[in-house]
Structures are given as C-alpha cells and as structure tokens.
Amino acid sequence: MTSQTFSTSPVLTVSHVGMKFLNRSVLEDIELTIGAGEFIGLIGPNGAGKSTLLRILLGLQKPTRGTVEILGSPVRRGNRYIGYVPQKIHLDPATPLSGRDLAGLGLDGHRYGIAFFNRKRHAQIDEALEMVDARHLADAPVGRLSGGEQQRLLIAQALLTHPQILLLDEPLSNLDIKSAREVVRLVARIQREHGVTVILVAHDMNPLIDVMDRIIYLAQGRAAIGPVDVVVQSDVLSTLYGYPVEVIRTRNRILVVGGQDSGIEDFSVTGGEHCHGTEVLST
C-alpha cells in the first residue's frame, strides 16, 4: 500500500475501514489518502466492494470499523462538497422533465417547498450545463435522451453545489466506446479546470489510463492504491486476490487474468448482473 505526500492537506482520508455483512467481510482494513485535484480510478471486479466503499464515502453506510474523514471532518450524509453521479437512472420515455429540471435538482432538490422561477437559479443551472457541454439539452425531454446525454445531465446535477470531490459510480458501464471516451474526457477537463478531486468507479481500467493520477485496485475486499505502473503488477494483485493472477500488457491495454477458474477477470469483457431485489434466489 503505497503512501504519498501531498503539497496540500488531503481531501479524503480513509483509515482502517472494515465492513461486514452477516459475518461476510466485504471490506478489510482499507487505508487511503487522496489529495486535492487528483483523478483516481477505483477499479475492481464485480463484488469486490466498490459500491460499498462508495456508500461509505457518501455517508450512506457506517463502516463496521475504522474512520473516514472528508475535508478534515468526519464523513456525513448530504455533504454539499461531494458531488455524486449514480450508475444510471431509470427514466420512462414519457417522464415529464426537461434537462434543466433534472440538473436543477442538484441545486435545491433536497429542500422542502416549491422552487419558484428565479433568474439567478436559472443562470446557475445553465452554467453547470455549459460545463458539461449540455446547454442544448436544457429544454429537451430527459426520457428521450441517450444514456450518454443523461449521464452528462447527471454530472451537471452533481456540479451544481460546486463540489470539491466528484464521485462517479460506473459512469462508463452502460455507454458505447465513443460516448465512454467522451465522458472520460469531460470528467478529466472538469478535474483540470476546476481543481475537483475525481473518484471514478469502473471495472475496466483501460479507458482511464491516460487521465488517472492514481488507481485504487479493490479485490476480495482489500485495496491497493498508487500509480498504475506500481499497483497493477502480478505480485501486488496476486496478494490482493489471494491467489496468483497475471497482469498482461499488450498494445496499450492491460489485462488481468486470474489463475483460478472462478476468478478470471478479463477487463476487456464487461458484464455481470447486479441484482437489486432483496428476495433474489438461487435455483
């Protein structure tokens, strides 16, 4: 677990965080320190605990042990300095909302009462739409937009509170290669121009290699953090997985191949089902 010193104080410190569900350990002793303005890729196979870690950072779940500090204070829910972009939202084509309505929820959607029209609010939302090149989507019906367009509106929504940290949960998993590349470029630009710390969750590290400063690799509930060249090595990942895995670098792509049948992680393949119901069963 590589450590690094920062010129500024860290924006995010995770120390000794562990998480257990029904005696099953989901996260084990996670140690992370992230500095201002970094672009971090949070990478790992399905079921590695990425979503759990994200929910802990958002204050939606309390870790079984350990502490999380964000901008010098303990983690709490609804922190306006954290912008959150969920994996995807399910919108019916006939959803009666415009792009501006959807993005605007990020500004004051959590407040009680009705929002009356006001020029300042309007301008703020338009500015956020501008930041994600979605000004032209302001009056479009959101239900009829493509996944990439909806994604940009959600990023605008997250930016409206001027967050210092932007958390994106698998923003690339439902997009085609071209839109995925656009989203990565867009997020990287926001990180550079506004000095926002970005934590982007993905199960394929390849689209992020050019933009990320460091990688958090999560497997079997354990994490390694550091530059890609240091972390993504056969010996480091084998220690995480607990069995031998091989890292193969070919033509600018990195593949991680498992030594056991159950653990094959070929990152050029996306897939896997997320089950959301609580009454999910085996046959």
Binding site: G78, Y84, V85, P86, Q87, L105, G106, G109, H110, A158
Partner: peptide, 10 residues
C-alpha cells in the same frame, strides 16, 4: 426521478 442522488444529498 433520481433516488440515489437524492439519498446522497441527504
């Protein structure tokens, strides 16, 4: 519309 974001915003 966006339950996950709403939850994250408190």
């Amino acid at each position: 519309v966006a339950p996950d974001n709403a939850e994250a915003r408190g």
